[in-house]
Amino acid sequence: MAATTKPMIECTKVSKVYPDGTVGLKNINLKIAQGEFVVIVGLSGAGKSTLLRSINRLQDITSGEILIAGESITSARGKALRLLRCNIGMIFQNFNLVKRSSVLRNVLTGRIAYYPTWKTTFNLFSKADKQTAYEALQQVGLADKVYSRADELSGGQQQRVSIARVLAQNPQLILADEPTASLDPQTSRKVMNDLKMLNEKYGMTVVANLHSVALAREFGQRVVGVRAGEIVYDGQMSDTPEAVFNDIYNGGVGKGVAQS
């Protein structure tokens, strides 16, 4: 793969100002290498979501540039943008499944970018892709729910369906926006384990926003701390003292930990 030499994500001087003047991101510089498991921590409203959603351009940034495996997603348009997104899976806090469609169809959504439009319109997915989707469901332990409607599943099951969707999509990069925020602690760990599996077994790069310090400590390799739209900490989890988390979560007025 050509991407091995280039970083998976490279943000240079990224800023985002909302139309009402609120500053979402302030001069973000961030490099994430292939195969890393990065957790982004910070208070709600600190800009974690904005950062993630800027990476696959669900939101446009005001200035700066974001490169995905060396290609600029900031300047991509139309088909080129869709092909880049095709390589980035996303997991949402609210699962974002199509509630009235079957689980299988939801997982197949991960494959649609590979099909011409007329084929997807008539639901002509190849047998191979249906099998891929089914295998993805087995990996997350939901094979028996394949024809159930998505809204018949519990929250944790729905989130695992969305992980299967990403698995079927088979991207190099996964963005997880608060994947456990609507789940109970036990299901949260299951979902995080699934993400870890994607990272270790398939070598996918994972960038996850996490609320919970415990989960971040357990699963993250690298920590990025965000406060008020700025990166205030960046380091390996193993070298990160507890004080850093306290600092990020308790405001730590004025004495932000130096950026590494």
Partner: peptide, 16 residues
Amino acid sequence: EGANEAVTATGGSKWH
């Protein structure tokens, strides 16, 4: 908007 975003994130077009 959620489901629409999920399809956008996988690289789907407006028609998708």
